[in-house]
Structures are given as structure tokens and as C-alpha cells.
Amino acid sequence: MKIMTVDDSAITRKIIRSAVEVLDYDVVEAMDGREALELLEREYEEIALILLDWNMPGMDGMEMLSNIKGDDRLKHIPVMMVTSETGGENIIRAIQAGAAHYLVKPFTIEELAKRILECLGRGY
């Protein structure tokens, strides 16, 4: 199975790739919402989790989340927001829109891996 990272920062995608590969999943990278949706069209059956940035050029993370949760083929895929946007109201908005978890940057690689496992039902 694969885990998708959607982030306009190549560095964040590299960090996420490291954590994901240790957990023995393959990685699919997209640099914005539009590219992610195109990839999901082709690969949605293999995607176990989507890690989604909030602030991206073009379609932002919340719009992307809304698209995923509004699509019958995709809505079962857990989504974790990975963002430097803090604030309880943002978290509540994301959770109510269907996000499984909300990880604030900066994070340690161990914490990222732990949250990924939790989203996959392999944690608490």
C-alpha cells in the first residue's frame, strides 16, 4: 500500500518520505491539490493514507479535503493535515470536514511516524 503526501515544500515531502519508508509503505508525492487529485484518479485503490498540507498554491488543503470526502471512491481514505497553521478553530474545522488527525509543524520524525500509524489504525 502507498501513502500520499501533498505539500508544496519539497523538503517536507522528503521528510515525510523518510518516515513513511521506515514503516514499510511506498510514497506517492504531489506538490499541490490538483496534481494529487489526478494521481488519486489513477491510484486511489492503493492509497492507505493522505498527508495534506493546508497552505498550498491553487487548491488549498481544506478544499482538497472537501473534494476527497465528497468523492465516494476516496472518502474512506484517512487524511492527516500536516501544517504550520496552529489554532484550535483550524483543527476543529479540519476534523469536522473529515480529517483523521492534525499534525502541527515542526514535528519530530518519530512523532510523524507515530501519528501515521495511529491514522492507519496501527496505533492506539
Binding site: 496552529t86 489554532g87 484550535g88 483543527i91 476543529i92 479540519a94 476534523i95 469536522q96 480529517a99 483523521a100 488527525h101 492534525y102 499534525l103 502541527v104 501519528r115 495511529e118 491514522c119
Partner: peptide, 20 residues
């Protein structure tokens, strides 16, 4: 506070809570 909000987000969803 900001960290706690984020760290508890998974529990927020699981328990179906609409506020902290």
C-alpha cells in the same frame, strides 16, 4: 496549548466532539 490541541486531534475525532 497549541501543541495539546494538535496532539489531541485524533481523540477529538474518535469521540465525535465538536469543541475542545
Amino acid at each position: 496549548a497549541y501543541l495539546i490541541e494538535s496532539r489531541l486531534s485524533g481523540m477529538l475525532r474518535e469521540l465525535g466532539c465538536s469543541s475542545y
